[in-house]
């Protein structure tokens, strides 16, 4: 072990307390996620082709949670995130802006018009020539079509809206495109995923590819899949958008996070989403 590596290891261990090795992947390997006793979600499946060199199977973050947390997501009333989906639905029907329109004026019932959206974003927008997140598309609609003020990229209003949109795709497999016009962004996201950063010198992969299933202090490390976002986190009892989670992770390794809504984080979101191609859309999920 070179001196440099040993310093890295010590830093990483100081951060983690210790990573306990040899833990089972999940407390109950056979736990199945069924919502309201009727909608069965895929929480483990074969890794997509582009990941085959690194992982055999991919797992939703749900499988790493304790039984009580898991149970909270299995009923739409017990899931506290769903009240924010209700608030998102209220916002969907609210007329705003100079054009005197609501989301519903053009898109009618989101159960029809938004079905499948969460599963395929971030997605290339041909007219704009850019990769767009659901948040980006919401703000495009608000500013260009409604003549309304954009939501702050990470905010309660935005989280409510993207949660409501995510619910319309619940149970559908994540299926983001990774080639064609998004190829360059996907490669950029992959580069970010594997680049060590911060005082602790950790990459996304250090925890979520090389140590998933192990404990970081008392936390069970997941694969860092984002199929459950937005996620209602018990720690602060609110919905978290995916790029806010990225931001928190990089801050925790004492790095300098990209801006939420930046092209870099959007590229990373595409890449991380593609690592979960095949898992069910779960938003709004419940996590610790």
């Amino acid at each position: 072990m070179t001196k440099l590596t040993s310093i890295r290891t010590i830093a990483a261990l100081a951060f983690a307390g210790s990573i306990a090795l040899g833990g089972a992947v999940t407390a109950d390997e056979n736990a199945e996620l069924v919502i309201n006793g009727e909608l069965a979600l895929v929480t483990k499946t074969a890794a997509p082709d582009h990941l085959k060199d690194s992982l055999d199977e991919i797992y939703s973050g749900w499988v790493y949670r304790e039984t009580d947390t898991q149970a909270m997501q299995m009923d739409d009333f017990d899931n506290p995130g769903m009240v924010f989906v209700d608030l998102g639905m209220d916002a969907w029907n609210k007329v705003e802006g100079t054009e005197n329109k609501s989301c519903a004026s053009c898109h009618n019932d989101p159960a029809e018009s938004m079905k499948g959206v969460r599963a395929t974003y971030p997605k290339w927008n041909e007219a704009a020539g850019e990769l767009r997140t659901v948040e980006g598309q919401v703000n495009h609609c608000r500013t260009k079509n409604m003549g309304a003020e954009p939501y702050k990229y990470v905010s309660g209003d935005m989280a409510n809206m993207v949660a409501m949109i995510a619910v319309q795709s619940r149970g559908m497999p994540v299926n983001v495109a990774i080639d064609g016009p998004v190829k360059a962004a996907w490669e950029q996201g992959k580069e970010i995923y594997y680049t060590r950063t911060g005082v602790l010198d950790l990459s996304c992969a250090s925890c979520h590819e090389q140590n998933y299933g192990n404990y970081i202090r008392a936390d069970h490390l997941s694969q860092g899949q984002i199929n459950g976002f937005p996620a209602y986190r018990l720690k602060d009892a609110r919905l978290h958008q995916v790029q806010d989670r990225f931001w928190g992770c990089i801050r925790d390794v004492r790095g300098e996070p990209y801006d939420r809504g930046s092209p870099e984080f959007t590229a990373l979101e595409l890449y991380v989403a593609s690592r979960g191609n095949g898992l069910s859309v779960e938003g709004a999920s419940v996590r610790n």
């Binding site: 009333f77 769903m82 009240v83 209700d86 209220d90 309660g156």
Partner: peptide, 9 residues
């Protein structure tokens, strides 16, 4: 802000 009740009965 944003206070909304839900009831299941």
């Amino acid at each position: 802000d944003g206070v909304k009740p839900r009831v299941k009965a």
